[in-house]
Design a binder for these strands. Structure first.
Length: 111
DNA sequence: TCAGTGACTGACC
DNA sequence: GGGTCAGCCACTG
């Protein structure tokens, strides 16, 4: 089954299922994958997501709703623009009402 | 082979 | 309440 794929590919599948106008955090994905303490791995997986156009990495932010990965989007406000394009308010590289837009894969995907 | 790094998180002081 | 430290796993040099 999917156990044949790499850890980061599992991350892609979760991020790929993030609905429009929603965002999630590294810890939420990591927790869903059973590696809540390996949130770094999720971030690292995102680093490799550049070769995966189907992975909306801009919908993945840290626990604070901060666009920590923005710098990896070319060092521009592209990540912010993408989020605002989905109706998500972003200020100072941080998502406004983050918990309101937060999407929990553990609940949405039902484990 | 060993050591360092990383788009994070939680706990401790 | 705010800052610091350690842990986690995989990849690169």
């Amino acid at each position: 089954m999917d156990e044949n794929i790499s850890f980061f590919e599992r991350v892609y599948q979760v991020v790929r299922q993030v609905p429009y106008g929603r965002v999630t955090s590294y810890g939420a994905i990591a927790s869903y994958l059973g590696a809540a303490r390996s949130a770094r791995m999720v971030g690292w997986a995102m680093n490799a997501s550049h070769g995966h156009d189907d992975v909306p990495a801009h919908r993945v932010v840290n626990r604070q709703g901060l666009l920590t990965g923005k710098h990896h989007f070319g060092g521009t406000n592209l990540m912010q623009q993408l989020l605002e394009n989905e109706g998500i308010k972003v200020k100072e590289n941080k998502i406004v009402d983050f918990k309101k837009h937060f999407w929990n894969p553990a609940e949405a995907l039902q484990r």
